[in-house]
């Protein structure tokens, strides 16, 4: 794998993207600004970021399903690493920042509309990455904060890398096929998890005595949640690497 990047070519690829997708970009960000003008809740920001981001990621390699477009794409004199790097830059960094900016813009516009037309106070929540959650434990409601900036970004990037790979892997209906694959993988992992839990906890017997081992899911989350997060972050470069190989091996 040749990982050296020529920044001049990357700039040219970015320029190519924006010149060829100018109308799409204008429409997308106008639409999102409009949505955020009316609904500007941090939870909603996260959902919109992930959902629209998926569609944005899948769109990047959609052209490869069309033979002539695919031929044209691969004939552009750049390395595959540069093409992939540009796509990652656009789908992750650019998309994240732009969604954040249009959220803030939408919030300000929404706040102004509320103030001038409805006479209500301009209530804007700038801290979009911190949300309040209310988990229950032992019958008591606890208030906790989650969704920090890094958590939001890593979750978003994981989604992006999965769907980017999906768009390279599946020739048609990449979004649907990637979702179906994720469901299949999820079911597979759930079965393995259930099997492990069943073998480890629950009713056990040793000779004439039987005993029960149990674990609280909240405790499991708080004790080992970081492992899941760490593995999730590790998944990102892993998926990018597979995407790279998929891109280099793709024929049109």
């Amino acid at each position: 794998m040749d990982s050296t990047l020529n920044y001049k070519r990357i700039v040219l690829l970015i320029k190519r993207y924006f010149l060829e997708n100018m109308n799409y970009e204008v429409m997308l960000w106008s639409l999102l600004t409009m949505i955020f003008t009316f609904i500007h809740q941090p939870d909603f920001f996260s959902s919109i970021l992930n959902l629209s981001g998926i569609l944005y990621a899948v769109r990047q390699y959609k052209s490869l399903s069309h033979n002539a477009n695919g031929m044209h794409f691969f004939m552009i004199p750049t390395k595959q690493t540069e093409k992939l790097f540009t796509t990652i830059l656009l789908t992750t960094v650019y998309y994240f920042i732009m969604t954040w900016l249009v959220y803030l813009l939408g919030s300000v516009l929404g706040g102004l509309i509320s103030k001038f037309y409805l006479g209500t106070s301009m209530d804007i929540k700038w801290d979009v990455f911190t949300t309040l959650t209310h988990p229950y434990e032992n019958g008591m409601m606890l208030t906790a904060t989650n969704n920090t900036f890094w958590q939001t970004l890593s979750k978003f990037t994981i989604f992006q890398s999965i769907f980017l790979l999906g768009s390279l892997y599946f020739k048609k209906n990449a979004t649907l096929k990637t979702i179906l694959s994720l469901i299949a993988i999820g079911i597979g992992f759930s079965i393995i998890e259930l099997f492990i839990i069943q073998q480890t906890f629950g009713e056990q017997s040793a000779g004439l005595q039987s005993f029960s081992l149990s674990i609280s899911s909240n405790k499991l989350d708080s004790s080992y949640g970081w492992i899941a997060q760490f593995l999730g972050v590790l998944l990102i470069p892993y998926l990018w690497l597979i995407s790279y190989f998929r891109l280099t091996e793709r024929e049109v």
Binding site: S63, N67, A68, M71, F74, M75, P77, K79
Partner: peptide, 19 residues
């Protein structure tokens, strides 16, 4: 698909991509 090679090849296909 070396860029040094690709910058010295131009392929005019029968079917055209969307521009």
């Amino acid at each position: 698909r070396n860029p040094e090679m690709l910058q010295d090849i131009y392929f005019i296909p029968e079917e055209f991509p969307e521009f």
